[in-house]
Design a protein around this nucleic acid. Structure first.
Lengths: 249, 249
DNA sequence: CGGAATCTTGATCAACTTCAAGCGTCGTGG
DNA sequence: CCACGACGCTTGAAGTTGATCAAGATTCCG
């Protein structure tokens, strides 16, 4: 369960201050020289909810690092069926590396603040910084694990298990002070596209979890987890991912 | 459609020669020094069909590069439902980087020949070779794209579309001389676990493609594509991934 | 030849989708 | 300030897809 990486990171700036020019991105490098060059090239941009950051098949010349807000990475079939592939949250990188055109749509689903720089510049920075390359490799491997967790969810879990799993992913990202309080960053339509369901099924399964007393509705797009153990059990997951029985070979 | 990368690579060795000691892996590096060290540490191993290369949750101290044969990367739920995450074919790397324990099962589904070396050694080679790191990053990004293509398939495609898409993936890997002749590397049970279906549904959908004249059965586990255009159309894919309408923003 | 594994086919069933309608909420403009 | 409309959410009824259950048929191999 790891859409989550950063529980602690959020871009800090005085709410109504002038546009900050420098964006510290210590998670991309610890090398001072590289960091300076990153800062020099990166500027802050804002995207409104609903706005498109990138469109499948197009060539985009800038990469972005999400600083605030949520976006979706998605793809779709010619007839309009769409699958959300990943939620993009603070610290996530948006932009295709090593290829001219994007394969996915990126859409802001809340107002988004991002650090933005030329893709060309970013790639040349990668070429000269092995450390940045290494960090990018590790974050890509983590993304791959998340994608694979989702393959299991989409291919083999029931609707009820999908919803429970989804809430647990959000729970892992939720604030440490209120671990059972969950703010849903997407509407039910989008949740459906993330879980491979219809929005009606999402509504019914959430209602069912509520009727079982496992969660409680708290105003719009907020839920409270009343029974975490039951939620975990409803998710169909292994309780502990490493509790496999040990058998000598 | 890109489980495929290498259409041309196959590990060459005299069939009954003594165990080769050196394994050339030019796709991991072009640096001669690194290549030499890779060769020095890597030894050839064989795995029989059905044998397990790695088990979820365990700590494995060796990494492997598939040279011949096919293996699956898979995961499962406590009650036994399993999802195949990826087919591992020649040139694919097996082994977890940056973490002690594996998250997935790796199983040979045919006899497999692999180059094998200590994970520790491999990781230290990565630390000193930025070029190898860069190559690994690019192959990881490609794996991520493949996983995401599969997310769309599992989340949004119908059973018929899944089978058609699967055959097209295999077609992309098939020999250049006989592009319409497809050898299935998995039994229908495994195809079902790859596509998120049951084996009965796989059998029925294949029969349906045959009845439509789109494919033809050719002995066990071999099919011939009779009508590629129809197969593409049945897969639900965009004909060209980059044919999106161009709309000015 | 015999037994296991794989594949096929049919009948029934359940989960989820589809279609349809109504309700609540929020934001905007009169 | 209220009315209206868009949007999101809920709920019901009916319909479909694919799963499940159950036999057979076929292939593979020792």
């Amino acid at each position: 369960m790891t859409y989550a990486q950063p529980r602690d990171f959020e871009y800090q700036s005085a709410p109504h201050s002038a546009e900050p020019r420098f964006v510290p991105l210590p998670f991309l490098t610890s090398c001072e020289h590289t960091q300076r060059r990153l800062n020099k090239e990166m500027t802050v941009r804002h995207f409104e909810a609903g706005q498109t950051l990138q469109i499948r098949g197009r060539c985009h010349h800038r990469v972005h690092v999400i600083l605030q807000g949520t976006a979706t990475l998605s793809t779709s079939l010619p007839d309009g069926r769409t699958q959300i592939l990943r939620l993009l949250m603070p610290r996530d990188l948006v932009g295709r590396l090593g290829s001219e055109t994007t394969r996915y749509d990126v859409t802001a689903i809340s107002d988004v603040t991002a650090g933005s720089m030329s893709r060309h510049e970013f790639e040349s920075l990668l070429r000269i910084s092995p450390e940045m390359t290494r960090r990018l490799l590790h974050s890509t491997l983590r993304e791959l694990d998340e994608a694979r967790e989702w393959l299991l969810l989409l291919g083999r879990k029931t609707a009820a298990e999908k919803l429970a799993s989804f809430l647990l992913v959000l729970q892992n990202r939720s604030s440490i002070r209120h671990p059972s309080h969950i703010r849903l960053p997407l509407c039910q339509f989008e949740i459906a596209d993330l879980l491979g369901l219809t929005h009606e099924t999402v509504s019914r399964q959430l209602a069912h979890l509520r009727d079982q007393g496992i969660i409680e509705y708290r105003g719009t797009r907020q839920v409270e987890i009343r029974d975490l153990a039951a939620l975990v059990s409803a998710s169909g997951n292994h309780t502990d991912p490493h509790d496999m029985p040990y058998v000598m070979q």
